[in-house]
Amino acid sequence: MFLGTHSPRLDEKGRIILPAKFREELAGGLVLTKGQENCIYVFSAREFEKVHADMVGAPMQNRQARDYNRVFLSGASDEVPDKQGRVTIPATLRSYAGLDRELVVIGAGNRAEIWNAQSWETYLQEQEKAFSEIDEDAVPGNTK
């Protein structure tokens, strides 16, 4: 499970050093893809297979499902971290997420997310107030 907030930097070759806490789970391979809110989702290869299996179950007749699958999968890149725990983020994904040198990597349960540091701060400021006001009935998976 991916948890926490980390602040690595993007090097001049477009690589990021994965947070130490995430390396074991991602050592066998990972998939980077476009995330919502202009971040990059990072899945272990095993978790990405589960996500993909769920996507395959969506009816092809559903236009929203087709559109989502196209954007999500066309931007995907499978990668293997090097011995130092570095992974290259493809230029198309760096551009999509507006990544520059300063990054934030957050744990989001079944995935990690890579954010432009300023975009993350803006997003977090907007969401923290709403977070404190969320009704327990609106939280997915919340059982009483």
Rank of each mutant, 00 (worst) to 15 (best):
F2R: 07
F2L: 09
T5A: 12
H6I: 04
H6C: 08
S7D: 12
S7K: 10
P8K: 08
R9A: 15
R9E: 15
L10G: 07
D11G: 08
D11E: 06
G14L: 07
G14K: 04
R15P: 08
R15N: 10
R15K: 15
L18N: 02
L18R: 01
P19R: 02
R23D: 08
E25D: 13
E25Q: 15
E25L: 13
E25I: 07
L26I: 09
A27D: 15
G28K: 13
G29D: 08
G29W: 04
G29T: 02
L30S: 10
L30K: 03
L30N: 10
L30V: 06
L30I: 10
V31Y: 00
V31E: 04
T33L: 13
K34H: 12
G35K: 00
Q36H: 13
E37A: 10
C39M: 04
C39R: 06
I40P: 03
Y41V: 00
Y41E: 01
V42Q: 08
F43Y: 15
S44Q: 04
A45F: 05
A45R: 12
R46G: 05
F48S: 05
E49I: 12
E49T: 10
K50Y: 07
V51Y: 03
V51F: 04
A53R: 12
A53P: 05
D54P: 00
D54L: 03
V56L: 13
A58E: 12
Q61P: 00
Q61I: 03
Q61R: 07
R63F: 05
R63T: 07
A65L: 06
A65E: 08
R66L: 13
D67M: 13
R70K: 14
F72Y: 10
F72C: 06
F72W: 07
G75D: 06
A76F: 09
S77G: 01
S77M: 02
D78K: 14
E79H: 02
V80A: 03
D82R: 09
K83W: 01
K83S: 14
Q84A: 15
G85I: 06
G85R: 05
R86G: 02
R86M: 05
A91Y: 09
A91R: 11
T92H: 15
L93W: 03
L93E: 08
R94A: 12
Y96W: 02
Y96F: 12
Y96R: 00
Y96G: 02
D100F: 07
R101L: 02
E102R: 10
L103E: 00
V104D: 09
V105K: 01
G107M: 00
A108Y: 00
A108H: 00
A108L: 05
G109I: 02
G109T: 01
G109A: 11
N110V: 06
R111G: 05
I114D: 04
W115C: 12
W115A: 13
N116M: 03
N116K: 04
Q118M: 10
Q118G: 08
E121S: 14
T122E: 15
Y123C: 09
Q125H: 14
Q125S: 15
Q125L: 13
E126L: 09
K129R: 15
A130P: 00
E133I: 06
E133N: 13
I134R: 14
D135K: 09
E136T: 06
E136A: 12
D137L: 07
D137T: 08
A138M: 10
P140S: 03
N142S: 04
K144S: 11
K144A: 11
